[in-house]
Design a protein around this nucleic acid. Structure first.
Lengths: 215, 215
DNA sequence: AAAGTACACGTACGGTGTACGTCTAGGAGG
DNA sequence: CCTCCTAGACGTACACCGTACGTGTACTTT
């Protein structure tokens, strides 16, 4: 029996196996051994199907929030949980990131993050700003990791950097070894740490300003 | 007379007017008052055309690097220059960001950034890491600004946040006013400042560690 | 048994990228 | 001047796409 869930699962599987470009209604139907138009009994159109894919992948994020932990550690955990989907569904990442969905699946992470940031001592305005900085960093990192936006952080730097004219780009040539090496996890954690530490400084400032008035 | 440049210009114009989805070879040909297949005398295929679009837009970035300025200001200028393309070519941004091109157009910004970071006192490894963090942040920010990835930083939060059940997402409800307000430039500069300050701390550490051995 | 419904499916239409062959205008060589 | 060659505009054709619409069938309800 056909069902929305089976269709979405087939779409995700197809994307992971052959890339997002390979997705077509006909292809998915064939994958399920079913006529093309049967899909439309469960999904209104292709766009909605891709939204469902994004939502499903997003809902797979496992947040193990520990409210008793220090807020910096909670931020780290949440960021890494988010990043984990890039490993579990690498080729779906672009779909998730590029699709604007307004379901509750997308709001749960926001709720969690806001709770953590408020516990860190930020007010609403600050918390939202911090959240947005983090989301921007994470999204950008995932895109690089997944293979998009590679020009500046080469995925196959061996070909990209090696051919470069050292006269035109002396520093690119000089730093080639470092540009070519890219341990994604290490890079991600480096930026994460940078942000967390910067956030901690702001948190202290925030606490200092309102501290005297507290309680 | 048809030419590669005219075709690319027509594509950019079309994307800005009607969005990336409106781009088709037939549409571009019609725009130029020309037969479809004539395009293929100047462009090998649609994918290459989109690459050319990305490259052209990217090359429009105006870097006014001032080597005499403090490195933190140079970083700010470069980041803002990059962001400027999201204003000049808003609907092309997704194309630029999602296309992996390995031309020299993408290396010039890298070269400039590496020069700045080296002047800040970072060695190759550190400079590359910092660069990647910045690129991730900028790319993520542009995507939000352009209207993609809106779930976590709603573009039309009025509809997204307003309908939310405060019982399920109390903090989203509580912070709704802050979530709904989003001055893109302000948000961008906030994160930029956060990163620059965090970088400055690392730069001092780097200088401190190797300082005694210097010169 | 009759009626209604849910859903799988075929056909068809207007769109897409592009391989291939043709035609024409302009320059080069005699 | 005439011929030949070539660059490039163009039409046709094919395989594929999303999906509107109508039909058939199996199952549920009355």
């Amino acid at each position: 029996m056909l069902s929305r869930d089976r269709i979405v699962a087939a779409a995700i599987s197809l994307i992971e196996r052959e890339g997002a470009d390979a997705v077509s209604m006909r292809r998915i139907a064939a994958e399920l051994g079913v006529g093309v138009m049967s899909l439309y009994n469960h999904v209104p159109n292709k766009s909605a199907l891709l939204d469902a894919v994004a939502e499903t992948v997003l809902s797979r994020i496992e947040f193990t929030d520990d409210p008793s932990a220090h807020w910096t550690d909670r931020v780290r955990m949440q960021a890494r949980a988010f990043r984990q989907i890039a490993h579990d569904f690498p080729r779906c990442t672009m779909v998730v990131v590029s699709r604007q969905l307004r379901s509750t699946a997308g709001l749960l992470p926001v709720e969690r993050a806001l709770a953590t940031l408020r516990d860190a001592g930020f007010d609403g305005r600050q918390a939202v700003r911090m959240l947005r900085v983090f989301i921007a960093y994470i999204v950008g990192s995932l895109l690089r990791e997944v293979g998009v936006t590679p020009t500046f952080a080469p995925v196959r730097p061996d070909v990209a950097v090696a051919e470069v004219d050292p006269a035109l780009f002396p520093l690119v040539g000089e730093f080639a070894p470092d540009l070519m090496a890219c341990d994604h996890e290490e890079e991600f954690d480096f930026g994460l740490e940078l942000l967390v530490q910067a956030m901690a400084v702001r948190a202290e400032q925030a606490a200092g300003r309102e501290g005297p008035h507290r309680r």
